[in-house]
Write a protein that binds this DNA or RNA. Structure first.
Lengths: 346, 346
DNA sequence: CTAAAAACCGGGAACGATTGCATAAATAAA
DNA sequence: TTTATTTATGCAATCGTTCCCGGTTTTTAG
């Protein structure tokens, strides 16, 4: 331990100056003569002086660190989004503290308290799938604390929001399956609390309607934990396949849902896409290597992260409180591979 | 912004006490009368007082945050390890700051400077595959700064180290392929700088020797960036397959290497395991869904993270400088699936 | 040659919390 | 009653940095 860093005082003492002069010299103040500046800066460099960020935080009442809350970092979408966030944050001198909710409302609140106590300057959050009550976020927001939602945005809170066009993603996916001859298309949806789920369901619904296919509510199964545990997906698919109106294709509306759906079909020896076709939202970068290769709706995760952090930093560094909030919607990308293949005659 | 937190001063003023009394009352000092304590504690609770961690850090010269440097968080092994790290760290009141080297030596140094400037109390690092020179770490270590290496440990530095038995993992994998009738087994290895690569190569070598198969150095190709870019893997496999002594099986010694190897075989229309068999180190949890399903050597990533952070915190909280360092080796797990299947007559 | 204006630098308070020391009052012992 | 001891509280320094407020030169203007 005992990792004694060199301070501005050490420099002052060594050079026979006052701390204020040293401080000003290092910050290139006009009040300091060029010669003094030169001496101070050179000496500081020589002994490898680094300003203490903690002392600065205390003085400036900001920590230059921002909090991120996601459900899981071991999820392609989020790890990509975090990469996007970091790429900008580090450039602007912010560091990020990452917390995981593991899709639990309770842990989300705990995380938030924790981050708040670490005095972060702002928050980037994609709410847990259990999150229905928003009081914990509303409280902070009311006190002017900067919050930006990404991906899983919420409705009743006026802040910056960044996500994809979920409606379009689901609409396109559904249309693709219909184009391939499927009439009975089920939806394996995420948590009903999430607006992204609602939007995806709406896109699915509309595509059916536009193609003159009757909408059947029993063709939708919601997974509260977004497919985090396999059991949940197993139950959902079990009841979808037991439907009178047995589906010939499935849309999975989240990363984990997609892979667990495929896993389920494998375990039941259902051949994709012949026995049942599928297409899913996923940001995995090896969906091309799966068996069969997966048709997916991919979200621009990296860009979402970048846009979100930019909005957040802009809000943090704003002198006046922000009143105009932006909602930015990026387009999803559909990649067609084998799993959504045309339904063959049997 | 103006997110004004309540301080100990506010309490003191409101209650007509001094800040020292309030501080002591909140820390339950014996010097404060029970009545005063009660008043202070109740009022603090009422106005939701939280001690300012930054002020504390400044005073106590510790930030209660630890740094993690890994190559990529979007890598199953590392995201699982980070989960393990967090599970312990948060319990003990530490937060973690994650930085990614993206397998670049240069960025690793930048990250280290950054983390040091954020005055972390300790460091958990899995070095980049480019890292050969260790001066940046040696400097810190000499000054008594707590560092724990995990997974990619280095040799010439006396610190705590946590990893898996790479030798055994590679030995078992090689033996499995030999058992399945393969005599020409190539190795797609990671960076030559990394000790884990050396250990894996050694395990592979020994297994060949033990089975009376001649070792051929041209059957090994090293990938400096550990498979981060596909190009690298493409070149390596290209030259392995162009060998006179053409391999009938390949061992991939890292996560990205494994998946990119499979991707290469697909692109060349090589059927696995009939045209060429493979087994790889991987912590992906959908290797069972790949086509073919992959035989893998899996590392206990979560546990590695947990053990590493425990050692680090122990060292941080030690009064006296640590002199005895531990090296903990956990066992890998071999999961046999289709890709390593017996070689069929053609 | 004097007065005003730059130019340059130091003292010390402040940020929020802890803590050794001093001090006051209250109680106990002599 | 006087002295010693305990009890309860306050003062002030400290951590590293910035910045307001002065102060002392030196330069410039009249």
């Amino acid at each position: 331990m005992k990792y004694e860093a060199v301070t501005i005082k050490d420099i002052a003492k060594a050079l026979g100056l006052s701390t204020s002069t040293v401080s000003r010299a290092l910050r290139d103040s006009y009040e300091i003569s060029p010669e003094t500046k030169k001496i101070v800066i050179e000496y500081a460099q020589q002994i490898n002086y680094r300003p203490n960020p903690i002392a600065l935080s205390l003085k400036e009442k900001r920590s230059r660190s921002i909090g991120i809350i996601v459900c899981e970092i071991a999820n392609s979408f989020f790890s990509q989004a975090i990469n996007g966030i970091e790429s900008i944050a580090y450039d602007k001198g912010y560091n990020v503290i990452i917390a995981q909710s593991h899709e639990s409302y309770e842990r989300e609140i705990l995380n938030l308290q924790y981050l708040a106590s670490r005095s972060i300057d702002g928050l980037l959050i994609s709410v847990s799938s259990e999150t229905e009550n928003l009081d914990h976020l509303i409280n902070l927001h009311k006190r002017g604390f900067p919050i930006v939602f990404f991906d899983r945005v919420v409705e009743n809170l006026d802040t910056h929001k960044v996500g994809v066009d979920n409606y379009k993603g689901a609409y396109d996916a559904t249309s693709e399956l219909i184009k391939n001859g499927h009439q009975n298309i089920a939806m394996l949806a995420g948590s009903e609390f999430l607006s992204i789920t609602k939007e995806r369901v709406a896109g699915y619904h509309q595509a059916l309607t536009d193609h003159k296919i009757a909408f059947d509510a029993s063709q939708i199964e919601y997974c509260l934990h977004g497919g985090m545990n396999y059991q949940e997906v197993e139950n959902a698919l079990g009841s979808l396949l037991a439907n009178n109106n047995k589906p010939s294709a499935v849309i999975a509306s989240a990363d984990k849902l997609t892979t667990n759906c495929l896993r389920y079909f494998k375990s039941k020896d259902l051949e994709v896409p012949n026995d049942i076709a599928m297409i899913g939202f996923s940001n995995l970068d090896l969906t091309d290597l799966l068996s069969p290769s997966l048709s997916v709706i991919r979200q621009p995760a990296y860009e979402i992260g970048q846009v979100a952090i930019e909005l957040l930093i802009k809000q943090i560094e704003n002198k006046r409180p922000t009143t105009e909030f932006e909602k930015i919607i990026l387009p999803p990308q559909m990649i067609i591979r084998e799993s959504s293949g045309a339904k063959k005659a049997r």
